[in-house]
């Protein structure tokens, strides 16, 4: 067990060193041009998140697959962030252009989903009770 732990830690250190190197190499080039995080940086986040998703979702008990669908529905509405940024710049009604209108609509639709998704999940989960 001790050995396993040491090997594992060493592995982690190596992985993080490699990741750091890759990040700084890729980030250094791209950040200079666009000012934002590089594609590789985002892609790294994406791939790791897919793995996290894979393991977390397999551990979900089949009995709760319906709440899983409704809660993922609610959290995917974090796309509201995009809507907020689009609607954001229009200070007054007169400033509303196509983009801020789209943003407003996106915020509205995503809100339906956020409130509806979390509440219906809560309603479902409240019904799951153990034997008395």
């Amino acid at each position: 067990m001790m050995l396993d732990a040491t090997v594992f830690t060493q592995g982690l250190v190596q992985v993080s060193e490699v990741a750091n190197l890759a990040m700084s190499a890729a980030g250094g080039v791209e950040t200079a041009v666009t000012g934002g995080p590089s594609f590789l940086h985002l892609f790294t986040v994406f791939v790791l998140a897919c793995f996290v998703g894979f393991y977390v979702v397999w551990s979900v008990t089949p009995a709760l697959h319906s709440p899983l669908l409704s809660v993922t529905n609610a959290i995917s509405s974090v796309i509201i962030v995009g809507g907020l940024l689009a609607a954001g710049p229009a200070a007054e009604l007169a400033d509303v252009d196509l983009s801020s209108l789209m943003g407003f609509l996106a915020v509205t639709l995503a809100s339906v989903n956020i409130f509806g998704g979390f509440l219906v999940t809560q309603r479902m989960l409240a019904m799951f009770k153990k034997k008395k």
């Binding site: 940024l85 609607a87 200070a91 007054e92 801020s100 407003f104 989903n113 956020i114 409130f115 998704g117």
Partner: peptide
Amino acid sequence: DPEVISYEIIFAGILVGGTIGTLVA
């Protein structure tokens, strides 16, 4: 975010959407 200044229309959107979502749920 400093770019986001239109709180009125944003809250209008959240209010309308949130009400619909809550009722449906």
